[in-house]
């Protein structure tokens, strides 16, 4: 069996379009047999806390169109990536500290915080996508 392709995704933006695109890449990659790791940091992380919260804002007309359409949202797609494709979704440990997010505050499919050194080590030789 060929070795799985490895995909590392860095999500730093809190915009709807970028979160959605990151979730699309993570979910389709993960369910296609690729090993997917996601690193959530900066403005992205607060959009992964449990509960409804403030939805991510659209950064342009496409995002506004997206808000009116029926389809899987970014949270649902990341959850599918984790549950159907075994994607490993981690918050950045620095962002967790800055936001003051506790263990239980994030979506249940978000794993333990990961430091940048470990993420970079894991990403070595993988495709790296940044959103």
């Amino acid at each position: 069996m060929p070795m799985a392709n490895r995909i590392s995704i860095v999500v730093v933006s809190g915009s709807l379009e970028r979160l959605q695109m990151a979730a699309m890449v993570a979910s389709v990659g993960a369910v296609s047999g690729d090993e997917v790791t996601v690193f959530l940091s900066m403005n992205a992380l607060r959009h992964f806390t449990r509960g409804t919260g403030e939805p991510p804002a659209a950064e342009g007309p496409f995002g506004r169109s997206l808000q009116e359409k029926k389809g899987p949202g970014y949270r649902q797609l990341f959850q599918s990536a984790a549950e159907l494709g075994d994607a490993k979704i981690h918050p950045c440990s620095m962002a967790v500290d800055v936001l003051g997010v506790g263990p239980g505050d994030l979506e249940p499919w978000v794993r333990e915080p990961l430091g940048l050194t470990r993420f970079l080590s894991d990403a070595h030789g993988a495709q790296v996508w940044t959103f």
Partner: peptide, 8 residues
């Protein structure tokens, strides 16, 4: 639904 909803 839109891509990748049907696939999921």
């Amino acid at each position: 639904s839109f891509c990748p909803g049907p696939l999921m």
